[in-house]
């Protein structure tokens, strides 16, 4: 499922919802997009509740985005992690790296 990006402006902040597969096919456009929005906003929320699949390329984009946000002083929050997102972060023990609260549903925990 090709990835779709929906964005919603909330004042100076930006809420971005990524839905579909966060994978190698999405990586290049997503990188360009995130690079642009990071220049323009002070606070960005990435809503990940509709992420269906995550692969190494997608995860790598998130890692680079986090690093770039820290460099620019942009607040980047990852919220609403889908089960696939949580699994990927846990597999690589990266939850702590992003530092965002992750809400585990019973399905994810079980």
């Amino acid at each position: 499922m090709a990835m779709e990006i929906q964005q919603e402006r909330q004042g100076a902040n930006l809420q971005i919802r990524l839905s579909g597969d966060l994978d190698i096919y999405a990586a290049a456009p997503l990188r360009t997009y995130l690079l642009t929005v990071l220049q323009q906003h002070h606070e960005i929320e990435l809503v990940l509740d509709e992420v269906a699949e995550v692969d190494g390329a997608g995860l790598q984009i998130l890692l680079a985005t986090k690093a770039e946000a820290m460099r620019l002083g942009v607040i980047l929050r990852l919220t609403g992690h889908s089960a696939a997102m949580v699994r990927a972060l846990q597999l690589c023990r990266l939850t702590a790296y992003f530092g965002d609260p992750v809400i585990l549903t019973r399905e994810m925990a079980g």
Binding site: A27, A28, L35, A64, E68
Partner: peptide, 19 residues
């Protein structure tokens, strides 16, 4: 497990399709 990001370039420099 520790995921290494040492060789990950800045977002502006990276090639999204390279690992």
């Amino acid at each position: 497990i520790v995921t290494l990001t040492d060789s990950l370039p800045a977002l502006s420099q990276m090639d999204a399709e390279s690992c």
